[in-house]
């Protein structure tokens, strides 16, 4: 349904999107994951014809977006990062405008009311968009993308700025949409994609670093456990012991913490739960462990885990350390 081949976008010397290729099949929900500034929005903007690619092609349903933009755009519903709403219109006027803009042929009243039901904005149908809450505005933005029943729906960070309840609602909505549409959504929140998407495309600094099934990514990430442990005792000796300990793939001292303890970053080998052996090893030496925290899997971990697969791990080590210290 969607095919991206060797897509490149350069702004002067900066390669915002660097040779990205992937495919999305009909009816799939694909998550587009990457930190802020990774090139997600740029890629989506190229896919929707808002920007032109420097090189490479993007095709929707077999139609090249640059060669035949009008036909390709008819097949896309797009919610940009900031919902493109005319604040001086009511929801009704706005959706009717979109209906005309897209040149829809469906039964106008029925179609628009259906969409309002699905995204649950029926109760604000007659209200001015300016006066709606952020959550409702976002939903009107989603409704806009659904007008004309496009085959492909593209959401750029659909849950940003919403409260937790609204996030859950929007996620459920996207899951529902996935039954009848091909959906791409971008996000920088890992749980979001793993909750909704069947497949995840990960990009970082404009480059594609993974394109796999969600379970595959989860497995990679979960096998990669990282602990932050506070231990009282002589730093060098502790480090020495930890490094020799079986099951620990990496450890380093993050510096002094409360009282006489130091914090240590410990990474276990994939699939090993190091917490119990670690406790006994420290107890043996009489070094009290006064704190232990499992570092949450964030995007950096995903990147690290994925990069690890490509044996590029050491290059990234410094980044992780600074991240942990920042917390």
């Amino acid at each position: 349904m969607i095919k991206i081949e060797n897509l490149v976008k350069t702004y002067g010397d900066i390669r915002a999107v660097d040779n990205i290729s992937f495919e999305v099949k009909e009816g799939e929900i694909v998550g587009f994951l990457g930190p802020n500034g990774a090139g997600k929005s740029t890629t989506m903007n190229m896919l929707t014809g808002y920007l032109s690619s420097t090189s490479g092609t993007a095709t929707i349903d077999g139609i090249n977006i640059l060669e035949n933009p009008l036909e390709a755009k008819k097949r896309i519903g797009f919610l940009p990062e900031q919902p493109p709403l005319y604040l001086d219109m009511t929801v009704e006027e706005y959706l009717n405008f979109i209906y005309d803009l897209k040149g829809c042929k469906l039964n106008r009243r029925k179609h628009l009311l259906e969409i309002c039901e699905v995204v649950r904005i029926t109760e604000v149908y007659k209200r001015l968009i300016r006066n709606l809450s952020k959550g409702y505005k976002q939903r009107v933005g989603i409704a806009q993308a659904l007008v004309g029943n496009p085959k492909v729906i593209i959401f750029d960070e659909p849950t940003v700025g919403l409260d937790p309840k609204q996030i859950v609602e929007i996620r459920n909505l996207i899951r529902t949409l996935g039954k009848n549409h091909t959906v791409i959504l971008s996000t920088h929140i890992l749980p979001e994609v793993s909750a909704i998407c069947e497949r995840i495309v990960v990009i970082n600094k404009g480059k594609l670093i993974a394109n796999e099934k969600t379970e595959e990514i989860s497995r990679v990430v979960e096998g990669f456990r990282r602990l932050c442990v506070k231990i009282v005792g002589p730093k060098e000796e502790i480090l020495d012991t930890l490094k020799k300990k079986e099951g620990i793939s990496y450890c380093e001292c993050l510096g002094a913490r409360e009282a006489d303890s130091n914090a240590y970053l410990i990474e276990s080998d994939p699939g090993v739960d190091i917490r119990r052996p670690l406790f006994f090893a420290l107890a043996e030496h009489g070094w009290p462990m006064i704190g232990e925290e499992t570092m949450s899997t964030n995007l950096e971990d995903v990147f690290l885990a994925l990069l690890d697969k490509n044996d590029e791990r050491k290059k990234k080590r410094g980044v992780v350390k600074s991240n942990i210290i920042a917390r």
């Binding site: 903007n45 929707t48 014809g49 808002y50 933009p69 009008l70 036909e71 755009k73 008819k74 896309i76 797009f78 940009p80 900031q82 493109p84 709403l85 005319y86 604040l87 979109i98 803009l101 897209k102 040149g103 806009q144």
Partner: peptide, 14 residues
Amino acid sequence: KQKTEQLLLTAPIS
């Protein structure tokens, strides 16, 4: 300014 141009530029109109 309102970013609504993105709507017009991604709509099927020239």
